[in-house]
């Protein structure tokens, strides 16, 4: 398990490859990369600042990764989340999961992202032509997280 919260950029391809190199028993690696878009809620976005709660952020990501490891037979899991100033096109978040077979890796990766979006203490503040604005939480993100609580 590897959790990183950092201001530095990262290379999603290198992270994905590293997840496999660690273990020849791995049959499947799934990676998700979230990027800064240049458009949101009807306005052009020139960049953003990501605030977080140092300490709680790392703890909550660790807890989410641990829960994924309890639910699925994962061989490895990595979460990288950037904070601070970000420009359109830059990767914000990487979640990589590896497993012997694909389904566990797919499901665990989706689970981690759904929980991260609703439980990890990050807040986006976007730059628009009208000034800066805080991004509001989405109901669809809540619904996505709740689907993992049904079974």
């Amino acid at each position: 398990m590897n959790i990183r919260v950092q201001t530095l950029a990262f290379d999603p391809g290198a992270e994905l490859n590293a997840l496999h190199a660690a273990n020849l028993g791995i049959g499947a690696v799934v990676g998700f990369v979230g990027y800064v878009r240049d458009f949101n809620e009807g306005r052009e976005v020139g960049g953003m600042f990501l605030e977080h709660f140092p300490g709680m952020t790392e703890k909550s990501l660790g807890k989410i990764a641990e829960e994924a490891g309890q639910r699925w037979p994962l061989l490895n899991i990595e979460i990288i989340h950037r904070v601070g100033r970000l420009e359109p096109g830059e990767p914000i978040v990487f979640v990589g999961t590896s497993s012997a077979h694909r389904q566990a890796a797919f499901d665990a990766c989706a689970f981690v992202m759904d929980y991260l979006k609703t439980r990890a203490p990050f807040w986006k503040k976007e730059d628009t032509a009208e000034g800066q604005r805080w991004v509001e939480g989405r109901c669809s993100d809540q619904a996505a997280a709740e689907r993992w609580q049904k079974d």
Partner: peptide, 25 residues
């Protein structure tokens, strides 16, 4: 540093935080 509900009991020495809906990812 753990999410909780408003009904959470408090004790001397606790650290609490209030914040709007999180928007990471």
């Amino acid at each position: 540093q753990e999410l909780c509900s408003l009904a959470e009991p408090l004790a001397e020495g606790d650290e609490v935080a209030f914040f709007p809906t999180v928007t990471g990812g």
